[in-house]
Design a protein around this nucleic acid. Structure first.
Length: 852
RNA sequence: GCCUGGGUGGCGGAAUGGCAGACGCAACGGACUUAAAAUCCGUUGACCGCAAGGUCAUAUGGGUUCGACUCCCAUCCCAGGCACCA
């Protein structure tokens, strides 16, 4: 050992040691004290920056802490390795995505290792390799066979830049989640997963997720968007020319059936299926057609903008309000969405802001059907709709009812008269999973002219990606141009057929990988049910908030679907979820704070930092930077502080090496201790207690590290010399050993090295996490805060456990407090044992005033 | 508009009813050094005061309480989610 802190020597040494010792190898046959710690597996984009590092460092610290607590810790890692960036690179450079992806994986794996992050690499899974995507395809077929995967023509989100469709969850503010291009609507035949079948369970089971942050649950709840209401059918008034309508009713969904007596017109979406038939041959037909054509040209994102002026035209048709029997005009309007409810709305301008605006614009009638209990509504003086609940008026037999009651009675009435019923609608749409791209798992379906859609038989899986493709951006899957791939006999009848050309959304790959980690090399099954039932759910899942809806909802859906298939016996995959904040850095260009990204030019490479300061410093600073659930700003100065601290710990052990070697472990005899020794012993155990609490709570690594720094400050202040008593040396040694143990999850290399220097056998992960000794925590004197009228006026040291009267007397004898108290009349005293005494005083004059 | 969070020194942040600013960074002063780096010691919320000490201070304004960063009400601002979803 020497004075210099040789991180560059010790770090590779211990990394090799952990690997050789197989510290994180797990036998999933046994699940005693199991702890499945999982960090979201990354897309192998290129190289990691320190912002990415936060997840892995958090996860590694948790895994090491749990390991030291004696848990059987499973921490696997893999690669979400299919995806567009690699294919886009191939279009530019011609290099096959497999090559760039595997290269990137090698780089990132090296970086994770150099960070000292330990995984059970024997369980590594790589989504783009056939031994994984074979099972992704198998799972697709299981979903297909249960009707949970289907093909349908529908208006879908098309990203022109990615030349592929997107799921609803992947459109953020009308833009592609990956490249931020404006998304366009296209009517295409695509593959969907029927996640809407699970809407209610996905919503209900959020209640089971006690270990999830509320905001993630709220986001999923909003996304699922359940609303209760009624389905009401409005009969079409037969047309005058004798033609018969194919469908005689126009149904709509409403959450406000209580307002229906105020419904003065009805509006259908421009895409409404029966619209062309309804207007055929009418004088209004050409105007309706022109309107529909015009609405189709506007991007759906623009149409959805709330401040956009609503437009519409009269269809020439009328419908009958089934409650009033009255005729009301049927309009077509661009503010009605085809994709929600029935694609039609009953318009109640008096009680709906949007209908109000539309009615005012086109001069449609407005009728009150709800009164406000607090303030009488008058149509003449209203300048907007009244949208709150109230009491029904002018509503026939339903008049005079509170809104809630009116809704239930009126819905029941619709049921009796068979023109409607209660209904629940969800905002959630089915998950669009086909992609017109190469670098994904091929959808294992064959189109036979006679048999139709035929799933690829299990024995023929995987459907391998062909190599004879050219990477071009055409909007059609490159697979379509591989004749070897496309042409295949029908598995059922043998006649020439064609394969599905699209590949699956990469979110399918990540929807089940946490199960595959439990049997990564199983060549006969996708999932090992026994291992899953023993080891699932994941005890602690760690990842970014950006997946609050996307990955985290898809994975929940998959788990539930697999549960229903009887493949596993758990129906929620992640017991606890931790979403860490992003690490940002100020851009040198504009001084603004941005998430680290290559395009912003504000990335910090871990490679340089590990070279200059060592992995432990980078880890410690990353944990210390702030509360882990919040975003944080990377500071180059901050890392110096972490480095200084670790070097100080190293130097202290080095400087005191002889004394440390000479000190015997002593049963601390507190009665014989001097106060400074007693204080350091107490500080040591307080630190153990608080660090453990911080880790057991919400991973407050920042305060945990601060506690250890405080203990180290106390150790430095203590600094015994060679002539110190055995007792003193032992207390010192105990404190510094505790620093080393507590640092083990955070700065593991340094901790391992110093542990050996302190004369212990190698292998800190086998050492039990320290437990605070209550006897050491005890104190015989406490500092009591003296307040006068709630203001701090001094502190005194007193024996522990004194009663109120004694403390009050001591406080009154304390000069500064006595000065304040003596002037006035003592009214009462508030006493918090061992903590505080508050003397409440009133001036004589004031006291008499208040009596008067 | 609705739903979540949040607003504390020069900076990152601590404290969830009981000493506001732990810990770290930066800054300043000092020691060591030919010098620098590193290290060590000290100061550091604002204001008044020679000092003892005092006053103010946790977005703003009220309230509850012996006592409020913490609880309640209102307002402003910031971030995230949802949003023409009937």
């Amino acid at each position: 050992m020497n004075e210099k802190y040789p991180f560059d020597e010790i770090e590779p040494k211990w990394q090799a040691y952990w690997k050789d010792q197989g510290f994180f190898k797990v036998d999933t046959g046994c699940a005693d004290r199991k702890y499945y710690c999982l960090v979201m597996f990354p897309y192998p984009s290129a190289a990691l920056h320190v912002g990415h590092g936060r997840n892995y460092i958090l996860g590694d610290a948790v895994a090491r802490y749990k390991k030291m607590q004696g848990f059987n810790v499973l921490t696997p890692m893999g690669w979400d390795a299919f995806g567009l960036p690699a294919e886009n690179a191939a279009i530019k450079t011609g290099t096959h995505p497999r090559i760039t992806t595997l290269d990137n994986i090698a780089t990132m794996k090296r970086q994770l290792n150099s960070w000292g992050i330990c995984y059970d690499w024997d369980r590594e899974v790589t989504a783009c390799l056939p031994d994984y995507y074979r099972w992704t395809q198998w799972l697709f077929i299981q979903l297909f066979q249960r009707g949970l995967a289907y093909k349908a023509k529908a208006p879908v989100n098309w990203c022109p830049s990615c030349a592929a469709v997107l799921a609803n969850e992947q459109v953020i503010d009308g833009k592609c989640w990956r490249c931020e291009s404006e998304v366009r609507e296209k009517n295409l035949e695509q593959w969907f997963f029927k996640i809407t079948d699970y809407a209610q369970r996905l919503l209900d089971d959020l209640a089971k997720l006690q270990g999830w942050p509320d905001r993630v649950k709220t986001m999923q709840q909003n996304w699922i968007g359940r609303s209760e209401g009624a389905w009401v059918e409005f009969p079409l008034v037969p047309r005058g020319d004798g033609r018969v309508d194919p469908r005689a009713v126009v149904p709509c969904f409403t959450t406000r059936v209580d307002t229906i007596f105020g419904c003065t017109y009805m509006v259908v979406a421009p895409e409404y299926a029966g619209l062309a038939d309804m207007v055929k041959g009418l004088p209004e037909e050409s105007a309706v057609r022109a309107f529909v054509a015009e609405a189709g040209k506007v991007a759906s994102a623009d149409r959805a903008a709330e401040d956009r002026e609503k437009k519409g035209v009269f269809t020439g048709r009328y419908v009958i309000n089934p409650y009033t029997g009255g005729n009301i005009p049927l309009w077509v309007g661009d503010y009605v969405l085809m994709s929600y409810g029935a694609g039609a709305v009953m318009a109640v301008p008096a009680h709906d802001t949007r209908d109000w605006a539309f009615a005012k614009k086109y001069g449609l009638p407005v009728k009150l059907s709800i009164q406000n209990a607090e303030q009488l509504l008058k149509l003449e003086s209203m300048d907007n709709a009244f949208c709150d609940d109230g009491v029904t008026v002018d509503s026939g037999v339903f008049s005079g009812l509170p809104s809630a009651e009116a809704r239930s009675r009126m819905t029941a009435h619709a049921g009796e008269k068979r023109f409607g019923r209660a209904m629940v609608q969800y905002r959630l749409r089915d998950w669009l999973i086909s992609r017109q791209r190469y670098w994904g798992a091929p959808i294992p379906i064959i189109y036979c002219p006679d048999c139709g859609l035929v799933p690829v038989p299990e024995k023929d899986l995987p459907v391998l990606l062909p190599d004879d493709v050219e990477f071009r951006l055409t909007g059609e899957s490159p697979l379509a141009r591989s004749s070897d791939f496309m042409n295949v006999p029908c598995p059922k009848c043998g006649q020439p057929s064609r394969r599905e050309r699209d590949t699956m959304d990469t979110f399918v790959d990540s929807s089940w990988y946490f199960l595959r980690f439990l049997s990564p090399h199983d060549e006969r099954h996708a999932i090992d049910a026994d291992a899953c039932n023993r080891w699932m759910p994941v005890d602690q899942y760690i990842g970014g908030i950006e997946h609050a809806i996307l990955h985290l909802m898809y994975a929940r859906f998959f788990t539930k679907a697999l549960y229903d298939m009887g493949l596993i016996r758990i129906d929620e995959p992640f017991a606890k979820l931790f979403t860490q904040g992003m690490i940002c850095k100020r851009s040198e260009k504009d001084g603004q704070l941005y998430k680290m990204s290559k395009s912003k030019g504000n990335v910090v490479s871990p490679d340089d930092l590990i070279r200059d300061y060592g992995a432990d410093t980078v880890r410690l600073y990353t944990l210390f930077i702030g509360p882990p659930e919040k975003d944080a700003e990377w500071s180059d100065d901050g890392i110096e502080g972490a480095y200084r601290f670790l070097r100080r710990v190293w130097r202290r052990v080095y400087e005191q090496r002889e004394l440390l070697a000479a000190s015997r472990p002593l049963k601390p005899d507190q009665s014989a201790m001097q106060p400074v020794e007693r204080d350091l012993l107490r500080k040591t155990h307080e630190t153990i207690h608080r660090v453990t609490q911080d880790l057991e709570g919400d991973f407050h690594f920042n305060t945990a590290v601060a506690q250890i720094m405080e203990l180290m400050n106390a150790v430095d202040a203590f600094s015994p010399d060679g002539s110190a008593s055995d007792q003193r040396k032992a207390v010192f040694r105990h404190a510094i050993e505790t620093v080393v143990l507590l640092l083990a999850p955070f700065a593991p290399h340094l901790a391992e090295e110093l542990w050996v220097e302190l004369g212990h056998p190698a292998g800190l992960l086998r050492v039990a996490w320290p437990v605070a000794d209550p006897a050491a925590l005890a104190r015989d004197q406490v500092e009591i805060v003296i307040q006068v009228n709630g203001k701090l006026r001094g502190t005194i040291m007193l024996a522990v456990g004194l009663d109120k009267a004694t403390v009050e007397a001591a406080a009154l004898a304390h000069p500064p407090a006595a000065k304040w108290a003596s002037r006035e009349k003592l009214v009462k005293t508030i006493f918090v044992p061992n903590k505080l005494i508050n003397l409440v005083i009133r001036s004589q004059g004031l006291a008499s005033c208040s009596k008067a």
